[in-house]
Amino acid sequence: MTAVLQILFDALSLGSLYALGALGIALIFGVMRLVNFAHGDYISFSIFALLWPTTAATTILFLGQVPPAVLIPFVILIGAGVSVLSEILVFRRLRDANPATLMIASFALGFVIKNLLLMLYSSRPKSLSILPGLAQQVEIGGARIPLLQVVTVAATIVILIALTAFLKRTRFGLEMRAAAQDFTMARMLGVRANRVILLAFAISGMLAGAIGLAIVVQTGTADINMGLSVMLVAFIATVIGGLGSLYGAVVAGFLIGGASVLMQVILPLDARPFRDAFVYALVIVVLLWRPQGLFAPRTAKQRV
């Protein structure tokens, strides 16, 4: 029983990261059909903003020693800032472009951000131990769970509830949901496109900052590619969940996290290095079973 509980928490904490990532990608995809490949680089950027630019091996914290009450909002705001800036500087100028062009533009943007960080900080991982208080364990039902896992899962749940409340209870939220479901129709009904898109970028960037924090607290390092693997899985989760369905993206994020942990647990040793192959094969199977995703909004139609 404790073993099961432990595995459940492992799956939930990994799933949380993927879910937050998927949400960030789904929000933007919903309003402007952009698969934002720069999202992973927003994650790294928001963390590297804490560090003083140096290519030396040592890490000089620029803003790291401030209390968490300042640190957390700062990282999240940086995430929002870089995201909003990229909308204003790049994506706003690509409103009429097709999804492939948008996607490649986002990739190019991510490439620029990544290489900028590489030039300023070098590829050596930077260590930073922020929020060290989370490096403890708690007993839940006999299982010893790292406090960080509990906090990650709890924070994810809080973020999801807050976001749901925002989307359901406010006018902005209503506009955004409408835009995500059918952007053209929403525009015709008076939704101000640029404002909604900007807001989506801001929220998506905040989520990137939050993921960055979760990763850095877990790993203790900032690395140029730290956001990449989360972003790739999140991207897949967005599609499996059903494009346009924020709820689906979150659930799919948790499912992939769960599948990955489960594979690690049940596969025999010789097959374990092939874990990701099994996970991705599963992705193909799910897509074949539900090409529209698990939770496709009813408005979505397959374009043959």
Binding site: I236, V239, P273, F274, L288, P291, R303
Partner: peptide
């Protein structure tokens, strides 16, 4: 059998499988 973005993701999954193997 897939179309649009689902097909794109499926091709990506194929790449990831090939790479891992």
């Amino acid at each position: 059998r897939l179309a649009g973005i689902a097909a794109s993701i499926a091709t990506f999954a194929m790449l990831a499988v090939i790479n891992t193997v």
